[in-house]
């Protein structure tokens, strides 16, 4: 599989695409997210798998996002997601609330190629009233009354994530974050950034194969060193808590967020291309 640049990878995400993003502790492709902002991507529909954090807040603040489906939006220890809250208040973001296992289940249905899957729970939650796409039927296998929720298959247009490494065949290693395999299987295409290339085929190594997503699901790969920064990458590097705290502080105001974007998304790229 030919390698592309991070900017070229961003070009493969069209305006208006339904884009699946992992949560902050699970291989978020922040270098690619910054490239999407620089490319001026618009009207993205983001899917938090199953929750959303820094990258989602950044994309919303930069005006790239029209809609968000997620089970939770927060910067974790750094507090609330300020640009998400501001966009909700302004009415510029269409929010669809979900619950974590429902998002996993909808992706698992897409992964299996079935139109829906059932899930326990949710009955009695107000989420149901706001999810006309979630249906309740009676369990056809039960002798009596047993209502259960059916969730439609959900196939994202694009899954994006940052893996530890890739090999020449396009297999990518995500370690123990195997839930990313579900997303990659369900999405129509996966675009992946990696820290580095592996000199050997990942699927031919018995130890690495289990934590590897096969090239059959991967459309294109770009190398992005420290591509998850300011978030963590497995045991390779830790979260930059000071940076996230600074983001949380700056992003409280439009001006502060603008200054953050200039410094960390636009100027940083100009420096690296210079």
């Amino acid at each position: 599989m030919p390698l592309v640049s991070v900017e070229e990878l961003a070009d493969l995400v069209p305006d208006g695409a339904l884009v699946a993003l992992p949560p902050d502790n699970s291989l978020v492709p922040n270098a690619l997210v910054r490239a999407l902002i620089r490319a001026g991507r618009r009207a993205l529909r983001l899917l938090g798998v199953p929750v959303s954090g820094y990258a989602t807040d950044l994309l919303i603040g930069a005006g790239c996002v029209a809609a968000l489906e997620s089970s939770g939006v927060t910067l974790g220890e750094a507090g609330v997601a300020p640009r998400f809250l501001a966009a909700l208040k302004r009415g510029t973001l269409a929010m669809t609330d979900a619950t974590c296992p429902a998002i996993h289940t909808m992706l698992q249905a897409a992964e299996k190629g079935v139109p829906f899957m059932p899930l326990r729970g949710i009955l009695g939650s107000d989420l149901l009233a706001h999810r006309p796409d979630w249906k309740v039927i009676n369990n056809p296998f039960a002798p009596g009354a047993d209502p259960i929720v059916l969730l439609p298959a959900l196939a994202p247009d694009v899954a994006i994530f940052h893996a530890m490494m890739a090999d020449d065949d396009g297999n990518v290693h995500v370690g123990r974050r195997h839930e990313l395999a579900t997303v990659a299987h369900a999405a129509r295409r996966s675009l992946v950034t990696v820290e580095r290339m592996s000199p050997r085929n990942l699927l031919e190594d018995e130890h690495l194969a289990a934590g590897t997503i096969a090239a059959v699901y991967v459309e294109a790969i770009a190398i992005a060193e420290r591509g998850a920064w300011p978030l963590a990458l497995l045991d390779e590097y830790a979260v930059d808590s000071a940076h996230l705290a600074e983001y949380a502080r700056l992003a409280r105001s439009d001006a502060g967020f603008g200054a953050y974007l200039d410094r960390h998304v636009f100027e940083a790229a100009r420096r690296s291309f210079a």
Binding site: S71, G72, T74, L88, K89, D97, C100, A102, R120
Partner: peptide
Amino acid sequence: NLIGTGDWPGTAARFPGSFGSAFMYLV
């Protein structure tokens, strides 16, 4: 309630979201 207050989905105050609660509380 992890969603918010006011009109849906939290026009007065917005909380982070329901996370896994709608499932975990029942199972």
